[in-house]
Design a protein around this nucleic acid. Structure first.
Length: 482
RNA sequence: GGCGCGGUCGCCAAGUGGUAAGGCCAGGGUCUGCAAAACCCUUAUACGUCGGUUCAAUUCCGACCCGCGCCUCCA
């Protein structure tokens, strides 16, 4: 069994062969910390979180680096708007990012460097490029000379001449060529700045990732990831800088995740059509958000609508309802002689290998989701006809769910905890307290005992209008949910 | 204009050269005082259009239509 990864550089799936197995180096472009993170960021984060976990599951020793861009025009603009230092903005949103990641339950990368911690290294690379005449300083700025990199465009499939022909690139009077990009930018007096051989300034956008990735992972490393939109110019320029400097291949496998669309339009900060992670988590369970993203292939575009999100939440609720059933009945019956259907046993026993097979095919998490829900139906059918189940089969199943949970971060939470958390999220909208609801239920049950159905139904309707649904249990008790 | 991606049941979404996973919704049923919830079953012509290759195409090739992305900050 071999892991295949779609490599943007090759435009096809390729067998994954790390440079120095079992070690794997992976760098993922993080966020620019000038605002709250939105669902689009969550997709990237979840995608690479799962890739990281799966590589570890496969036995690789992964060094995972995800940076913070903490010096940038947008941060400076935001700081000016709010009348505070750029550092305040950066720190504020680094904290917000950490909070969101904690809520989302993603693993913490091996390293989370900040761009501003690597200025010296960036300068070293720029200096090297200038010495090789692959870059040139002009009036305090330093530009990369794109034409000096013979294979420029190999990642995005762009050709230099066509780029020049495109009228959308703003001509900077100091640049020799329109396509050249800034490695170092002269700073205005009130902007963040560091001393440099070219005068006080700050780094260009792309150089930081070259510096940080090579610092932690070496001149050549295995995986570099990010959103599709970063492919050009960001990643293309990273390649140019890094390879121009080191004269070695920069990255072996490039992985790019697809976008989240809102009404078939890209979700982005510039369009203003975004949902922040923080807001979304007030309404949906973090695991439902994760399922939304992992139920589609990471390279496909993914449409977000309220309807789809509700459907996702509903399906996850169903999974946990079944998982609760299985684990409860499993504990009650380890001595059971009852035999589950062969079909179910086979599917349970081959679950982990089916999971690995799907994941080996370019991290096909969507297929895994299908696998699991297929099992939900099988289990329920079986459980409907028996109270005592085979301890062996359910234990194998529960164990497999844990294994999968370890990689996807899905399907292996404590069902009761999950169900309670979802209930708590919905409770926010309910105005009655638990005690008040219970009092209503007691009143209704009194009415039911005297077969006063009209009154009983009236109370039930009253609660229903508040979003509370009742469930009369066979043993005479009444439960409620929202 | 250049480069690239995609069009699969009402909605979402895998997948394959030989008659298409899964989820949501809907309909039917079990249960119930009636419900709700839960569960089960079902959707025997869902694979953009038109050609081509093939014994066989949704799956390969070509053209076309439609949608989207990148080419400028962006996950």
């Amino acid at each position: 069994m071999t892991l295949k990864i779609y490599n943007t550089l090759a435009r096809k799936k390729q067998e994954f062969v790390p440079l120095n197995p079992p070690k794997v180096g992976m760098y993922v472009c993080g966020v620019t910390v000038y605002d709250e993170c939105h669902l689009g960021h969550a997709r990237a984060v979840f995608t690479f979180d799962v890739i990281y976990r799966y590589l570890k599951h496969r036995g690789y020793e992964v060094t995972y680096v995800r940076n913070f861009t903490d010096v940038d025009d947008k941060i400076i603009n935001r700081a000016n708007q709010e009348g505070v230092s750029w550092k305040v903005i950066a720190e504020k949103y680094i904290a917000a990012f950490g909070r969101d990641m904690g809520d989302l339950g993603t693993l913490v990368p091996t390293h989370e460097p900040k761009a501003t911690e690597h200025i010296a290294h960036m300068q070293k690379i720029i200096k090297g490029l200038v010495e090789k005449q692959m870059a040139y300083p002009i009036e305090g700025d330093v530009f990369y000379s794109v034409r000096k990199k013979k294979d420029y465009g190999k990642l995005s499939g762009k050709k230099i001449d066509e780029l020049e022909a495109g009228a959308r690139i703003e001509i900077h009077e100091a640049k020799k060529e329109a396509i050249d990009f800034a490695l170092w930018k002269k700073s205005k007096p009130d902007e963040p700045q560091w001393d440099s051989p070219w005068g006080p300034g700050r780094p260009g956008w792309h150089i930081e990732c070259s510096a940080m990735s090579m610092h932690f992972l070496g001149s050549t490393f295995d995986i570099h990831g990010g959103g599709r939109d970063l492919m050009f110019p960001h990643h293309e320029n990273e390649i140019a800088q890094s390879e121009g400097f080191s004269e070695k291949p920069f990255v072996r496998y490039w992985i790019h995740n697809g976008f989240i669309n809102i009404n078939a339009e890209k979700m982005s900060k510039s369009l203003g059509n975004f949902f922040t992670i923080h807001e979304l988590l007030k309404r949906y369970h973090p695991e439902a958000l994760r399922l939304l993203i992992l139920a589609a292939h990471y390279r496909s575009p993914l449409d977000y609508t309220e309807k789809i999100m509700e459907a996702t939440q509903a399906s996850l609720d169903r999974w946990y309802a079944t998982l609760a059933r299985v684990s409860t009945q499993c504990q009650a019956s380890s001595k059971s002689k009852d035999h589950p259907p062969k079909d179910l046993v086979n599917k349970v026993e081959s679950l982990v290998s089916a999971f690995e097979e799907a994941m080996d095919d370019d991290f096909n998490t969507a297929k895994v989701v299908g696998l699991l829900f297929d099992l939900v139906r099988e289990w329920n059918k079986y459980l409907d006809g028996t109270t005592e189940i085979s301890g062996k089969t359910c234990q194998t199943f529960l164990k497999a769910a844990q294994t999968i949970h370890g990689v996807l971060g899905l399907f292996g939470s404590d069902p009761q905890v999950y169900l309670n958390q979802v209930k708590a999220l919905k409770m926010v909208k309910v105005t009655l307290s638990d005690e008040e609801i219970q009092e209503k239920i007691n009143q209704r049950n009194s009415a039911r005992q005297t077969k006063n159905w009209a009154l009983a139904d009236a109370i039930r309707n009253e609660l229903a209008s508040l979003g509370i649904t009742l469930k009369d249990n066979p043993d005479g008790t009444t439960g409620w949910n929202i």
